[in-house]
């Protein structure tokens, strides 16, 4: 089994990313949740898996039900990116609401304190 340069590079990057995630999770750094770690392992793990075992895409295509194996990979990637964007937008929206709430509390503190 011969390895191409891109396979080695992708594997190394994926390994480094997963290692960082596990390290942060074990050290219980702020904002590190199990869900976040799972997503990280799933995304980078899949990339490494596809890079090292390209034939895995045929299996993936068979599971998803799409004929072309590359199309299956692209579709899966799109779904993952879409989910990530959705999560990101939700987080931004929540932050925006929190900022508005803080701004409101600050502007009303004079009358709130009197109550």
């Amino acid at each position: 089994m011969t390895f191409h340069l891109y396979q080695i590079l992708v594997s190394l990057i994926a390994f480094a990313m997963i290692y960082q995630g596990i390290k942060k999770y074990i050290q219980r750094k702020k904002g590190q949740t199990f869900l976040k770690l799972s997503v990280r392992i799933a995304v980078w793990g899949s990339m490494a898996l596809i890079a090292v075992f390209p034939k895995f895409t045929v299996f993936l295509a068979h599971i998803i039900g799409i004929e072309g194996n590359i199309n299956a990979v692209i579709l899966t990637g799109f779904i993952l990116i879409f989910l990530m964007i959705f999560k990101l937008l939700s987080a931004i929206e929540k932050l925006e609401q929190n900022i508005s709430e803080l701004t409101r509390k600050d502007s009303l503190k004079e009358i709130s304190n009197k109550k």
Binding site: I99, S100, T103, R104, L108
Partner: peptide, 24 residues
Amino acid sequence: VFRHKINRGKGATTKTGIEASKLL
């Protein structure tokens, strides 16, 4: 007169006014 330290938009501003009225 109440003041938002940063711009938050018409909806947020109206809501601040409503909250102030409730307190009053």
